[in-house]
Amino acid sequence: MLIHGLKRLLGMIPVLFTVSILVFAFIKLMPGDPARIYAGADASLEAVEAARHTLGLDRPLPMQYFDWLASLAQGDLGVTYRTRQPVSEVIGASFMPSLWLALASFCWSALAGIALGVFAARRRGRWQDYGAMGLAVSGISLPPFWLGLLLIQFVAVPFGVFATSGFERPLDLVLPAITLGSAVAAVMARFTRSAYLEAANEDYVRTARAKGLTQRMVVWKHTMRNALIPIVTMLGLQFGFLLSGSIVIETVFSWPGLGWLLIESIKSQDQPVVQSLVLLFVTMFLVINLAVDLLYGVINPTVRHT
């Protein structure tokens, strides 16, 4: 198991390497002259050229790429063009707000989604099932940024309990977390329903019922336990998507997180920040997916070592 995990971890390296080349190419193709942005809009031509030299932007592109990798390996992400702060500091300051938002959204949406899915599956074909699934398909179709705007307009502004933007108190998490988690809750409800129904169709569930076990035992010990294997996998994947979903949501709530930082940096052409953030997002996403795969092996012994 450990060796398998290590192998998978090493398998990530070629993907990350290719991604790093792609990200580097993206950054080089971004509009705007980075030396001009670094030096400032009204800097003299000499100052711009001097900035180009200090930033190493006059070196050949492959050299620039390896310079970047070398400083990455030393944990040096460069300085932002806007404020000249170290990029690692700026990203570090935005990391926790994003993590809090992702965790809060994940917790409520996982619980609500699974509960709604089991509820619908156990009342299959009845109006409760149709109602729950109608709610779920609506949740998938709802533009999350619109939900955020509506919550600001109809909850935050009139009642004044929740902030319309920013993150100062834990209470400020509520509306962004509802917004970000709604799609995940909807996806989980649909997925849980079908996973539950599939498990409930198995012979062992019929056997459990036939030998006279109580309903509670049949549902929780025999059906739910087996349905949980695909559900946990799906949950892990959804956590990865929460990270990227937060990019738009953070803009709605002016949330001081990574997504907001990314959009602001793209708009102000702050290339070192964009470069590091994109790579960070991809790495987090890959690590989460790997963790899900490994977890899948742990909870489902039949797929181990394949």
Partner: peptide, 17 residues
Amino acid sequence: VLFAFPGMLLAIAIVAV
């Protein structure tokens, strides 16, 4: 490699370029 970009990030990166 394309799948390594979570959700909208790839689209955002492309539009940024």
